[in-house]
């Protein structure tokens, strides 16, 4: 290796498996597929371990590869958002975290119904806490495009959440005979 950093593979797995898994899951909405993608990402890391220069470089590399593989998987499967949401509820056991708010759980579901590009920028911004400039570098997209995708994605997500909430309230009112 041309640099001093000596990465330990198992340690990297321990440190980053949740990040990689979460990225893949939030992009694909499919828990099983996310597991497969996570495995593939780490196997690719093993093949390129000698090229990792630092902990930060490795983290960024993992994010990029996880996003690319998730995008590839989505293209192969041609998943449609609404169908995916139904799948998640019925088959893939979208687990409700014990401390998650109802809105939070719904937001997570609704995220998978967004266009891929908006979904990617939102996940990197709000899960990984990356700045728009960092997202742009990772996705190899202009910063202005990233900011636009973030704004549009937030707007659409909020609209969908509001629409669902209204429907939920209406259904509750109808059920209780109001």
């Amino acid at each position: 290796m041309a640099h001093d950093w000596q990465p330990d593979f198992e340690q990297l797995v321990d440190e980053h498996q949740s990040m990689v898994f979460s990225l893949a899951w939030r992009m694909t909405g499919d828990r099983g597929l996310a597991e497969e993608i996570a495995q593939d990402v780490f196997l690719e890391l093993d093949r390129h371990l000698g090229r990792m220069e630092s902990a930060a470089h490795t983290c960024n590399w993992l994010r990029r590869v996880a996003m690319n593989r998730s995008t590839d998987a989505l293209r192969r499967r041609r998943v449609r958002g609404l169908d995916l949401w139904v799948e998640m509820d019925e088959r893939h056991g979208m687990r409700v975290e014990p401390n998650a708010s109802p809105l939070g759980t719904r937001l997570e579901h609704l995220l998978t119904t967004l266009p891929e590009a908006q979904r990617a920028t939102l996940v990197l911004r709000y899960q990984e806490d990356m700045l728009p400039e960092e997202i742009a570098a990772l996705l190899e997209t202009p910063v202005a495009t990233v900011k636009s995708q973030l704004q549009r994605g937030l707007k659409l997500l909020r609209a969908k959440a509001t629409c669902q909430l209204k429907e939920f309230i209406r259904n509750r009112e109808q059920a209780s005979g109001i």
Partner: peptide
Amino acid sequence: ESEFEQELRQALERRPAPPSLKGKILARR
């Protein structure tokens, strides 16, 4: 919008990887 973003950030906290994931990765490796 800011409250919504906070809600979104909380909703998108990293999920723990399945316990079996590391074992599968090492086996495939």
